[in-house]
Design a protein around this nucleic acid. Structure first.
Ligand SMILES: [Mn+2]
Ligand SMILES: [Mn+2]
Ligand SMILES: [Zn+2]
Ligand SMILES: [Zn+2]
Lengths: 151, 151
DNA sequence: TTGCTTATTCGCATGATTTGCAGATTAGGT
DNA sequence: ACCTAATCTGCAAATCATGCGAATAAGCAA
């Protein structure tokens, strides 16, 4: 996703209005690597802007997605999660705390994934389930990750 | 998933009852490679057994899943799909007709998928999105696949 | 500034999927 | 045939997301 400034520019150039709700969401999404749900963003947004509507959060997220500025991912039938990282990448889901980490495509030997016969893949997604570093770490239970389970 | 006969045996041995509803679902799921949803199974089941409850379909599917006799998969936030194929495998989703095909693990060079750093994967799933053979096939629009979109 | 036009926000209804609950029914044994 | 626990069924309710219309406000023109 582009920077809030660039998004403002794009919205203006397309005749869309710059509302405080949109600006807040732009900033909450900017470089956000947490893959938040609409509800999570709504909660965070509400702290800074009491009264903002969940409907508006959904609306804005949908708009950004349709504009190609935001990605969506879902895991195991959970709620949709929004992803400002538009680069081609995959995900690692921690079954302990629910954290979702990006897995850069070059961490994988992508080309080695041969396509199944008689099927023309336009995209491939890989999802790892397991335990993240923070949840594995035996010592230092200080600052443990918040349980943010997918399911 | 094991055969209907074997399932009947297992249910009996566990003191569970053999009802016509269960037997019907056993047969509908047996070697079913369509990855049907609960609704789809309910529709098919209703044809053979008018009056069967959707609730019972869900209940039986959940039971089989908890017994480890049935797998569940979801794609893009769609409804849960049930999978009697318990072997380790992946999936190819046709964006045209919604068909979901199994992709045998040996079609992939699984070991070459190096795990991301500081994450201990317990399972890896690969999903291809694209166009299936039947939807690609230029000639022979005879017997086209039913549109069974995930979303 | 003031006022106008129309995009946007908001609250609520609705849809889709799945589960909780409790009363009616039935499988399977005595 | 009868008992009883397991099962089935219908309906309420939870969750997540979208449709809709009235109220609001951004951007612009005067
Ligand atoms: Mn990501
Ligand atoms: Mn499968
Ligand atoms: Zn974790
Ligand atoms: Zn197809």
């Amino acid at each position: 996703m582009r920077s809030p400034e660039q998004l403002v520019e794009r919205f203006r150039s397309e005749g869309l209005k710059i509302t405080p709700q949109r600006q807040l969401l732009f900033s909450l999404l900017h470089e956000n690597a947490e893959h938040p749900t609409a509800e999570a963003l709504f909660t965070t947004a509400s702290a800074q802007m009491p009264g903002i509507s969940l409907r508006t959060v959904y609306q804005t997220l949908t708009d950004l997605t349709e504009m190609g500025e935001l990605g969506q991912v879902t895991f195991d039938g959970g709620a949709v999660r929004f992803d400002p990282n538009l680069t081609d990448h995959h995900h690692a889901v921690c079954d302990q705390c629910g954290a979702i980490a990006d897995v850069s495509i070059d961490h994988l030997d992508a080309v080695s994934i041969s396509k199944p016969n008689d099927f023309s893949p336009s995209s491939t997604s890989v999802v790892f389930h397991g335990t993240c570093a923070r949840c594995t770490m035996p010592t230092s239970n200080l600052d443990k990750p918040t349980n943010n389970q997918t399911k």
